[in-house]
Amino acid sequence: MSSSSWTERVVLVRDGVRLSCRDWGRSGGSGPDTLLLHGLAGHCGEWDALARLLRDAGHRVVALDQRGHGSSERLPADVSRAAYVADVLAVVEELGLVRPLLIGQSLGGHTALLTAAARPDLPRALVLVEAGPGEPEPGLPEQIGGWLRAWPVPFPSREAAVAYLGDGKRAVGEGWADGLEERDGGLWPRFDPEVMERSLHENARRDFREEWAAVTCPGLVVLGEGGIIGRDQYADMARARPGLRGVSLPGAGHDVHLERPELLGGLILDFVRRQGL
Score class of each variant (00 low, 15 high):
residue 33 D to W: 05
residue 4 S to N: 04
residue 134 G to S: 07
residue 156 P to G: 02
residue 30 S to Q: 14
residue 249 L to E: 08
residue 135 E to T: 09
residue 172 V to C: 06
residue 140 L to I: 06
residue 228 I to E: 12
residue 164 Y to K: 03
residue 245 R to H: 07
residue 205 R to E: 15
residue 42 G to Y: 03
residue 131 A to M: 04
residue 150 A to I: 01
residue 15 D to K: 05
residue 131 A to T: 03
residue 241 R to L: 07
residue 67 R to L: 12
residue 66 Q to Y: 00
residue 95 L to W: 12
residue 75 L to I: 07
residue 155 F to Q: 06
residue 179 G to D: 01
residue 33 D to S: 13
residue 191 F to W: 12
residue 36 L to M: 11
residue 174 E to M: 06
residue 172 V to H: 01
residue 214 A to M: 08
residue 236 D to Q: 13
residue 9 R to N: 10
residue 231 R to C: 08
residue 241 R to Y: 07
residue 39 G to P: 10
residue 248 S to R: 14
residue 188 W to C: 13
residue 174 E to D: 13
residue 149 R to D: 10
residue 86 A to C: 05
residue 209 R to Q: 15
residue 189 P to M: 02
residue 179 G to C: 09
residue 142 E to W: 00
residue 31 G to L: 06
residue 106 S to C: 09
residue 73 E to W: 05
residue 237 M to H: 11
residue 54 L to I: 11
residue 159 E to K: 10
residue 76 P to I: 11
residue 214 A to H: 02
residue 226 G to R: 15
residue 80 S to Y: 10
residue 153 V to D: 08
residue 90 A to W: 14
residue 251 G to R: 10
residue 123 P to I: 02
residue 78 D to K: 13
residue 20 S to M: 08
residue 236 D to M: 05
residue 76 P to T: 13
residue 222 V to W: 07
residue 101 L to Q: 14
residue 149 R to L: 05
residue 83 A to L: 03
residue 244 L to W: 07
residue 56 D to H: 03
residue 199 S to C: 00
residue 38 H to T: 10
residue 162 V to S: 09
residue 236 D to G: 11
residue 182 E to T: 09
residue 232 D to T: 15
residue 150 A to Q: 13
residue 256 V to D: 12
residue 200 L to H: 07
residue 176 W to K: 11
residue 258 L to Y: 02
residue 140 L to V: 07
residue 59 H to C: 15
residue 166 G to F: 07
residue 251 G to A: 09
residue 179 G to R: 04
residue 116 A to N: 03
residue 228 I to W: 08
residue 243 G to M: 00
residue 25 G to A: 05
residue 262 E to Y: 11
residue 97 L to P: 12
residue 57 A to S: 15
residue 69 H to I: 04
residue 45 G to C: 02
residue 129 V to G: 06
residue 216 T to C: 05
residue 95 L to V: 11
residue 85 V to E: 10
residue 122 L to G: 14
residue 21 C to A: 14
residue 194 E to W: 00
residue 270 D to K: 07
residue 227 G to T: 13
residue 101 L to V: 13
residue 101 L to M: 11
residue 35 L to P: 10
residue 70 G to T: 08
residue 219 G to C: 14
residue 114 L to F: 08
residue 145 G to N: 02
residue 147 W to A: 15
residue 148 L to Q: 06
residue 7 T to S: 14
residue 48 D to G: 02
residue 32 P to Y: 02
residue 262 E to F: 11
residue 254 H to P: 09
residue 224 G to M: 10
residue 130 E to C: 04
residue 156 P to V: 09
residue 47 W to A: 08
residue 155 F to M: 07
residue 17 V to N: 05
residue 100 P to A: 09
residue 46 E to W: 14
residue 236 D to E: 14
residue 113 L to P: 04
residue 168 G to W: 06
residue 186 G to F: 02
residue 175 G to V: 05
residue 185 G to C: 09
residue 247 V to Q: 05
residue 121 D to I: 05
